[in-house]
Amino acid sequence: MVRFTLRQLTYLTETARQGGIAQAARQLNVSAAAIASALDKLEAATGLTLFDRFPAQGMRLTRAGETFATQAEALLAQADALDRQAADLVSGGAGRIHIGTHHALAQRIVLPAVLAFRESHPGVRIEVKEADYPALVDSLDAGEVDALVVFDQGEDSRRHESEILLELPPLVLLSASHALAVKSRISLSELTGLPYVAVSPAGPGPSYLQLLQAAGVHPEVPFQSQSRELVQAYVGKGFGFTLAGFPPKQDRTIEGDTIVARPLKENIGHYRVVIARSRQVVQTGLIDRFLEMCRLSSSTSGTTGVQGSVIL
């Protein structure tokens, strides 16, 4: 148990600097009696004689007092830094944010939010964790992340509060040289018989290929890749088409071929992107401000956003 206070340490160090209680009292704008009482209690608590007292000549630290005062100065400096940090936390000038997300959403929503947030909050440390959905939910429940930006897979409303950020209907990605690339919208009937290039393993929830199959289109799948960049490269070479939630960042693949994104005429379903937060954790203003950046970046991600909140 700590047997002394920061106020007592302040009186000790100022008395040592000023060479006497009266001088320290004037500097600190407190009574000399208050300082004398505090020093007496400090010596009693520590069992140390901190000052040699010389009538009419002031006070001087003993050797033990010098060692103790040096440590007291360091402790007071740490306390001052902690006080400033607490003020920064209240104002949002410092702190730490942990966000869980998926790879595609990290690139499209979370990274732009991080870059924008750091401009206005340079003292805040932001950590982003990418993982599969079950691992992210475990991290949220364990308090390891503050919020998730994820593809919706049906959060537990008893534990989580979710807000819809985006609904992503599939876009058809094609080689720019494909005959369908000149169309503004593509129908399911026009995709019949065309090979499909799949991302494997599929992402969370039903894949776009499964949505396509449920709509009655069952394409051959000659190419699969875990890399979205390689999937787009296959498409760019004319090996087939694929479906994606986001338009490509660039219209050229890693092989230098041009690809285009076209919406489907029919509604075959969509992916939903949500912000998920734990009901068990008190949310801070700092997290709220970062998530607002996520909302803003989602509104400029090249897709149609859905405004408002929903409890899932």
Rank of each mutant, 00 (worst) to 15 (best):
L243A: 12
Q78L: 13
L174D: 00
V260Q: 05
G93F: 07
L75N: 05
S157P: 11
L211W: 03
A214T: 08
T49E: 12
L173C: 12
E155S: 09
G205I: 02
L212R: 03
G123W: 06
K237D: 05
P247A: 15
E255D: 14
R26V: 14
Q27G: 03
F151S: 01
D152R: 05
Q224C: 04
Q23Y: 00
R185P: 00
H270K: 14
N29G: 05
V273G: 03
R252S: 01
D83I: 01
V310E: 13
N29E: 15
P201D: 04
L75I: 06
P169R: 13
L168Y: 05
R279Y: 11
R125H: 07
N267W: 09
S37W: 03
L82Y: 08
Q57Y: 04
A261G: 08
G47Y: 12
A22S: 14
G256Q: 08
T15A: 10
V273E: 04
P204Y: 08
I259G: 06
P134N: 06
E190W: 06
R262I: 14
Q280R: 15
H121C: 11
D141G: 07
C294T: 15
R158G: 15
D288W: 00
R279D: 11
A24I: 07
S301R: 02
G193V: 01
D83G: 09
H121K: 11
A104L: 10
R53H: 07
P247D: 10
I259V: 15
V124E: 05
T67G: 04
P134Y: 03
G238H: 02
R84C: 01
S297L: 14
S299R: 11
V235H: 04
F290L: 13
V149L: 11
S200D: 13
G123D: 07
A45S: 12
K183S: 14
L173I: 15
L173W: 06
T5Y: 01
L312G: 10
L42W: 12
V149H: 09
Y271T: 01
I99E: 09
D146R: 05
E127G: 00
I164Q: 12
V2S: 05
E73S: 01
V197Q: 00
I21L: 11
T242G: 04
D88R: 13
A202P: 12
A69T: 13
R279C: 14
S31F: 10
A215P: 13
A142P: 00
D40C: 07
S207C: 02
L50D: 10
S37G: 00
F239W: 08
R63C: 00
F223G: 09
E155W: 05
S298G: 15
L191V: 06
V282C: 00
V260K: 07
A25K: 03
T258N: 02
V172M: 11
P222C: 08
Y196E: 13
R118H: 06
Q27S: 11
R228V: 12
H218Q: 11
D80N: 09
D138K: 13
Q78C: 03
S31R: 08
M293R: 15
A45I: 06
V124W: 09
R17I: 03
A276P: 03
A32N: 09
R7K: 14
T49H: 10
D251N: 13
A233F: 02
E144Q: 15
S189N: 10
I21N: 06
R295L: 09
L264M: 11
R252V: 07
L173G: 04
L148W: 04
A116E: 12
Y11D: 10
L89P: 00
T67W: 09
L188F: 11
Q210Y: 03
